[in-house]
Computed example of a mutant assay.
Amino acid sequence: MAATITNTVIDLSHHNTKPDFAKAAADGLQGVIHKATQGQSGVDPTYAPRRPKAEAAGLLWGAYHFGTGSDGVKQAEHFLKTVGPDHASMLLVLDLEGNPTGPSMTLEEARAFVTHVRAVTGRWPGLYSGHYVKELLHAQKDPVLGQCWFWLAQYGPTPVVPPAWAKWTFWQYTDGAIGPGPHEVPGIGACDRDKFNGDAAKLTTFWKAGGV
């Protein structure tokens, strides 16, 4: 029997304008992972006002940090401060990809980030990446980053997981333009869409446990 895959998650940032969370939830959307921070000081201005609106619509809420080439612990502190203490039932994620506007986060900085999040929250965050982490690790496993559940970014028909992880938990299969469909969500429009490696009930359980 083929594994159940659920396509009811999206990830957003300030680039996605005027989302209608109620309409998206009515169409079956379950969760939103939203950009919260970048680097040591950047904050997505839409993160804080959108969270209560999404939760009021019954959606699960998560936050991600876009890593840059600087101190990983300081970035983690900034991320956790912005997200706030009410994060036990949220997914927390490090976005590890090439930085188009400056230095990119290194493996050492990424390890420092996730280790600090683990020390403060008691759980490993998710790690979002695609070809960038494959280039950094090659075919090697990573004893630190491998503790994080993996969110694959790959816009193609077949997910290819780096050796550091046994499987993908989420798979961002499209950015709303590139990759297989569907690309759009009612109330949101074309956006990053993400599949979950499990059924809808398992997604809810995993999410409410903070990704544990």
Score class of each variant (00 low, 15 high):
Leu59Glu: 04
Gly58Val: 01
Leu59Phe: 04
Gly69Ala: 11
Val73Glu: 15
Gly62Asp: 10
Val43Gln: 11
Trp61Thr: 00
Ala57Cys: 06
Thr68Trp: 04
Gly69Tyr: 11
Pro49Ser: 14
Phe66Gly: 06
Tyr64Lys: 07
Ser70Glu: 15
Gly69Lys: 11
Thr68Asn: 07
Ala48Arg: 13
Val73Ser: 12
Gly58His: 10
Leu59Ser: 04
Asp71Lys: 03
Ala48Asn: 04
Asp44Phe: 10
Asp71Arg: 03
Ala57Thr: 00
Pro45Ala: 06
Asp44Asn: 12
Gly42Pro: 01
Ala56Lys: 15
Asp44Gln: 12
Thr68Gly: 09
Gly58Asp: 06
Lys53Ser: 09
Tyr47Phe: 15
Pro45Gln: 08
Ser41Gly: 08
Gly42Arg: 07
Arg50Ser: 12
Tyr64Ser: 11
Leu60Tyr: 09
Arg50Pro: 04
Arg51Leu: 06
Asp44Ser: 08
Ser41Ile: 06
Pro49Ile: 08
Val73Lys: 15
Ala54Leu: 06
Gly67Asn: 09
Gly72Ile: 03
Trp61Lys: 01
Glu55Ala: 13
Pro49Glu: 11
Leu60Val: 02
Arg50Asn: 15
Trp61Met: 01
Tyr47Met: 07
Tyr64Cys: 09
Ser41Glu: 13
Gly62Glu: 06
Arg50His: 13
Val73Ala: 13
Ala54Tyr: 07
Gly69His: 13
Gly69Trp: 10
Ser41Trp: 11
Ser70Leu: 10
Gly67Val: 01
Gly42Thr: 02
Tyr64Val: 12
Gly72Tyr: 04
Gly42Phe: 15
Val43Glu: 12
Ala57Phe: 05
Lys53Phe: 00
Tyr64Trp: 12
Pro49Tyr: 14
Ala48Phe: 03
Val43Thr: 13
Asp44Lys: 11
Gly67Pro: 05
Val73Asp: 08
Gly42Leu: 12
Ala54Ile: 03
Ala57Trp: 02
Pro52Ile: 02
Ala63Met: 02
Phe66Thr: 03
Tyr64Leu: 10
Lys53Tyr: 00
Thr46Ile: 05
Pro52Thr: 05
Gly67Thr: 06
Lys53Val: 12
Ser41Ala: 14
Ala54Cys: 07
Glu55Met: 15
Gly72Val: 03
Leu60Lys: 02
Ala63Asn: 10
Lys53Pro: 00
Val43Asp: 02
Thr46Cys: 10
Ala48Gly: 03
Val43Ala: 01
Val73Leu: 14
Ala54Phe: 07
Lys53Gly: 00
Thr46Phe: 08
Trp61Gly: 04
Phe66Gln: 08
Gly72Pro: 02
Asp71Ile: 02
Val43Ser: 03
Pro49His: 14
Ala63Glu: 05
Gly42Gln: 13
Val43Leu: 08
Pro45Phe: 01
His65Met: 03
Ser41Arg: 14
Gly67Phe: 07
Val43Cys: 02
Ala63Val: 05
Gly69Cys: 12
Gly72Gln: 05
Tyr47Trp: 14
Val73Cys: 11
Gly69Val: 07
Tyr64Ala: 11
Gly62Ala: 07
Lys53Met: 12
Glu55Pro: 13
Arg50Cys: 03
Gly72Ser: 09
Thr46Ala: 14
Phe66Trp: 14
Glu55Thr: 15
Lys53Leu: 15
Val73Tyr: 12
Ala57Ser: 14
Thr46Pro: 00
Pro52Asp: 09
Ser41Lys: 14
Tyr47Ser: 12
Ala54Asn: 07
Ala48Ser: 11
Thr46Val: 13
Tyr47Asp: 10
Trp61Ala: 02
His65Val: 01
